[in-house]
Design a protein around this nucleic acid. Sequence first.
DNA 1: TATTGTTATACTCTATAACTATA
DNA 2: TATAGTTATAGAGTATAACAATA
Lengths: 160, 160
Amino acid sequence: MTTTPDDRRDLAAMVAPLARTLIAAEEPVLRAHEISMWGYIVLTALATEPVRTQAALAQAIGADKSRIIGVLDELQEQDLIERYPDPADRRVHLLALTASGEQRRRAAQAEIRRSEQRFLARLPAADREAFLRALQVLSTCAGPSADPSAGPSHAAGPAS
Amino acid sequence: MTTTPDDRRDLAAMVAPLARTLIAAEEPVLRAHEISMWGYIVLTALATEPVRTQAALAQAIGADKSRIIGVLDELQEQDLIERYPDPADRRVHLLALTASGEQRRRAAQAEIRRSEQRFLARLPAADREAFLRALQVLSTCAGPSADPSAGPSHAAGPAS
DNA sequence: TATTGTTATACTCTATAACTATA
DNA sequence: TATAGTTATAGAGTATAACAATA
């Protein structure tokens, strides 16, 4: 049963379009909640990871430090995050989610999760569980940390 | 067991980095075989799908017709494909894989598959099977045809 | 001198729009 | 007039490099 491994497309040829589809599905949801994709990535990182400075945030999401500045500006203007100087090191800007930032993030994510449930409903329950398990294993073993010079978690293109 | 669906990242946040990782893994292999990512996509499409004209090829891989011209030029110069006029409609360029094109594609794919096997080895056999099944279901239900204006199969980025 | 955040510049990739030759 | 292939232009997104403030 396992000896016929070639009757399928390459992994990248299946996973890349799938990623594209999932991102496309998130876009209208985020638009409805008035956050950009990068904004959502940042809000999620602030909500889930112990990130305090901009540099740490940039590293956590696999983006360049200069890349996230405009994003932070927008989020701050919407009162979704706060930026305040670290009294111990005045070069640093400490970051924090505001209450409405967490609320906004939570609302958007809830809707995204509902969308994902509908999407995953195509799969039989056992495969769905296994798929999610596999995804957690494969995506963490291979996160943005694999190549420090690699782009943001969501960017991917043919290249060369 | 199925009632705790939230202890994971969003699907896109797992699938997009995975796609990036898989593409990054393909790149050195393709470089060794002296084909570009787009070249490989084109060779694969010509080998697996009944595509004859450039327009049909472009549609098959979800790219703009102007996007693939440079790629075809390169492949033709390497004698990996042939372009010849259709006697029935002299506007059309018919496409065909050459013997060495098919050989090159096969060699590259074989190495990619070996790399994938090593990568998938992180998973228990049952999950691996289910993962591949799920991938085939989810990636086809949502291929490039979902949005005709969508980019190529392998491109994905935050956007907005 | 090194580092944080910022700004400005250049480059890659892609989409869009003209152009030709056939129909 | 419409279509296949081609070419040229413009735009989005990103990375890289310089800059000011602080350590």
